[in-house]
Write a protein that binds this DNA or RNA. Sequence first.
DNA 1: AATATAAATCGATTTTACTGAACAAATGAC
DNA 2: GTCATTTGTTCAGTAAAATCGATTTATATT
Lengths: 297, 297
Amino acid sequence: MSRRHFTLRQLDIFAAVMQTGQVRRAAATCHIGQAAVSQALRELADTLGVTLFVSRGRLLEPTSNAHRLLALASGPRAELSALAERLRGEPDAAFVGPVHLAASSTIARYLLPALLADLVARHPALRPTLSSGNSVETEARVAAGAADIGFIEGPTTRADILACHWRTDRLTLIGPPSAPATLAGADLAHWPWVAREAGSGTRTVFEHDLALAGITIPPATLVVDDSGAQVRAVAAGAGLACVSRAAAAAAAAAGDIRLVTLAGQDFARPLWSIRRAGADPEPLANRLLAALASPSA
Amino acid sequence: MSRRHFTLRQLDIFAAVMQTGQVRRAAATCHIGQAAVSQALRELADTLGVTLFVSRGRLLEPTSNAHRLLALASGPRAELSALAERLRGEPDAAFVGPVHLAASSTIARYLLPALLADLVARHPALRPTLSSGNSVETEARVAAGAADIGFIEGPTTRADILACHWRTDRLTLIGPPSAPATLAGADLAHWPWVAREAGSGTRTVFEHDLALAGITIPPATLVVDDSGAQVRAVAAGAGLACVSRAAAAAAAAAGDIRLVTLAGQDFARPLWSIRRAGADPEPLANRLLAALASPSA
DNA sequence: AATATAAATCGATTTTACTGAACAAATGAC
DNA sequence: GTCATTTGTTCAGTAAAATCGATTTATATT
């Protein structure tokens, strides 16, 4: 079972053979020798695992598989051929009008507000709408077309969703102002912990990275389902927590909590932008994605 | 302006960069080195003629063009990836039920009847429908979905039609039984001619090949719009004509006309099978096309 | 300033795509 | 039937490409 991939060139050569009905004429239209066409046909049939032609006299006769292949491949092939023109032809959409965004809660609360505020300030006609939810809800909104773009924490499993790296969220340990600025892995076991609920993306990353480093912490003494609540609990002296840097920034600047560095550890998780797969992309969405990745653009 | 084509590999590498957000990580997922990814991105951007990334710090930042490309290419790419499975997975449709064929008149009258009769004899549950018309009408029927498959004489110009070589129609000169079996090019000018109307595919090929050989014939003394009428006129002694071999076979066997060979000339034209582009192919149509090309299958 | 990270660049190497000639099968001419 | 012609395949050799490893440049982090 040869698992190699076929190439567009092989498809084009195959199409030429179907259209001309002969290997030699296909070779002429493709400006190559007939040996190359023979080879391309054999490799294509091998990688697809089907018989495309049978010898009939001194000509090749296309099987029904060949006709199926031609019918199935011609559409996608034509779309790819038109790519360059479409890319160069369609003008960038202006930052004007309504756009619907969806994001999981941490992103919607701590990352997007500042980015969107900046964007709206520079493009007054832009009208973004933002709905927050968990990752599953966000994916569903995007897949259904209710949102043009979504932002989530974990990678998606859905096939109807097109995921793309957006930015990196860095997590930080936080403690009460009295906590030391740096801790070693072994110290963590002596502190009480304020954790997110099980299933939270933040908690999953945190525990995964700790396990990788061979660090164990006691069960949480307090569990809340919101990182803002975690911050306030830590400020009130409930113990340590691990939250997104963005969620901790304001309270840390105000002196309510202290950012704690864990020696040798850097908790990071990728954030993903998602959109509906297959559908014609909303032109404004493309520019928005580019703009949201770089606030200065 | 580099007019070269991009490859599926380049698209896949580009998608990996978009998903991972970094060249190095994309290189890892593609199982190649970082240098190869850099090169693939540069070549892709060159062939598309757009900027895909701009340097932002030590990372690459996707432009809106990159987001557009990802959105535009992912659909067709996924369809092509699924090709092998679809080809191997879908069982061949049985020769059962209704199929609508359309064909230009000569094909519908002299070629398809025998082929279809043979096919129906071997597959009693098959219910073909055949409508004849000129090439434009046939194309329109296929494009509109009124016919599953069509057969025409000339190559098509429509973009919504998928043309494929079907078989080769060979033309022959015919004359009254008193005519010699072989003529030279110079002899043709001394005969009266029974021609098809201007615009007929058969007439166009005939005149084109004559012109190529430097042979001139006098204006037709009789013009009819049907090759059967031509045959009967020739049998009645009206002169010579050029018709499809299939149209002349019966009358020649009966001794009503004589097949005349023109020294060194072989009039041939390709016949095309056509179907609707882009649409999901009717499964039965694929088998039918394969079967109609080879009566013995 | 020193260190670490990311990407681009460049020469070397492996892999792939293609060529050209030899060969086999089938057709058509005589 | 025999012979030349046409067509596709095969295979060794070659030209082109994709990829690698090392180096360079730019940018963060400390």
